[in-house]
Simulated scan of single mutants.
Amino acid sequence: MKEIRIGLVGAGWMGKTHTNAFLNALMLFGAEAGKPVFEVVADVDLEAAKITSEKLGFARWSNSWQEIVSDQNVDVIDIATPNVFHYEVAKAALENGKHVYCEKPLTLSADQSKELANLAKEKGVVNYVGYNNVMNPASAYIKELVSSGKLGQIMRFSGTYDQDGLLDPNLPITWRHINKHSGSGSLGDLGSHLLSISQFILGDISKVNALSKIVIPKRPKQAGSSELADVENDDVISILAEYANGAIGTISSSRVATGRKNYLTFEIQGTDGSVFYSLERMNEVQVYFNSDHHADRGFRNVFLGPDHKGYETFYPAQGIALGYNDMKVLEAHELLSAISEGTPYACDFEFGWKIDRIISAILKSDSEKSWVEIV
């Protein structure tokens, strides 16, 4: 059994989610893959760090992430801060030879992400980006269908990720609306999840053409304030894509999609079959194969179950729904296993860089109103 000592940077909701995932990974998988030890939590708000430390069982707390990235009693730096701080913290952690677990996105630019990916390879440490939808057992099942050739030649990927959480124009502005803090709007916050699924299952996108819109151009500076501030990034975005494998794609996201709560859906169409998935029906995958008897009856439901990678950890029977936190548990286990046993993992910093370079190309395309090659 290898103890893996964790230094958490960021005492907010995501930091708590990561810690909960580590605890459940230990409970479900046992300590053989690595036992997480909660060493220290850092946050700019020292009181928040103290409260989180005491609540979640960290040994100590700090208001200086600079101290913990060089702490000899820490093995892995867990970055759960707002997007703008990811690059600085991750780079310092890598330079100190730490394993790094960074919530998505890796950074706010493709160049910075590539730099971190190269540095992580040079240091030979585990480098993990938290694209949790990649760890969904449904994603593994669909990737297997595509890779096996059962769907035939892939013709098209179409997907959308819509929420209406920011539809109310009276909601105050946050860091998510400011480019220097977030990098982009619905694209980076929501669309990046679709891009991670697409990358995992279908591989590289070669070029994109995008169009976005800011639906609510100004928001209150504070709740109830009459003073307004400019929204700098996309509320809605739509993307045409061409894949390296010859398929075409349509990808969109919205944070002001009236009536939609967590509407991540995608369909992959092949010459021999198709597959459809919705995160709001997380435990079901709809499939259609030309070879099926009575194929004219259309799609059929496949319920995730113990035969699907990842699912068997939680339940012994089909049809019992998994949730968001379960994907994070699988993510935490994969990280621990990579550190303690050297097992392979999909969402390394190079994977994160590939997502960020697609986002950079999309933003350039939207700005220039033209097709942009992804290089």
Rank of each mutant, 00 (worst) to 15 (best):
R60D: 02
T19M: 12
R5I: 09
V126D: 03
L167C: 09
A92N: 12
D43Q: 04
V134A: 12
H293A: 15
N83F: 14
L106C: 09
E373V: 10
K369D: 13
V372C: 12
G183T: 02
H86T: 07
M282I: 15
T343A: 10
I154Q: 01
S182H: 08
K369W: 00
L336R: 00
S62G: 03
T81A: 05
D45C: 07
A49C: 11
Y161Q: 03
K121V: 10
P169C: 09
M27D: 15
I320G: 01
Y324R: 15
G188A: 06
I4R: 10
L23H: 10
E280C: 02
D296E: 14
K114E: 06
L26R: 11
E67R: 05
I173D: 13
S370P: 00
E350V: 00
E95A: 01
Y101R: 04
A49T: 09
G319I: 08
G159H: 02
L171H: 11
Y277I: 11
I205Q: 06
F58Q: 01
N233H: 09
A21N: 02
H333T: 03
N96G: 08
D164Q: 13
L94F: 14
S206T: 07
D45P: 07
S274T: 06
A25Y: 12
P172L: 03
S360K: 06
K213D: 13
Y141S: 01
G224N: 01
P316H: 12
S53D: 13
G342R: 05
R357T: 15
D348G: 03
N133Y: 15
F299W: 00
N170D: 14
A346H: 12
K114C: 02
A21P: 02
S370I: 03
H293M: 13
T81L: 05
A90P: 01
L336M: 14
A48D: 04
H18Y: 15
A223N: 05
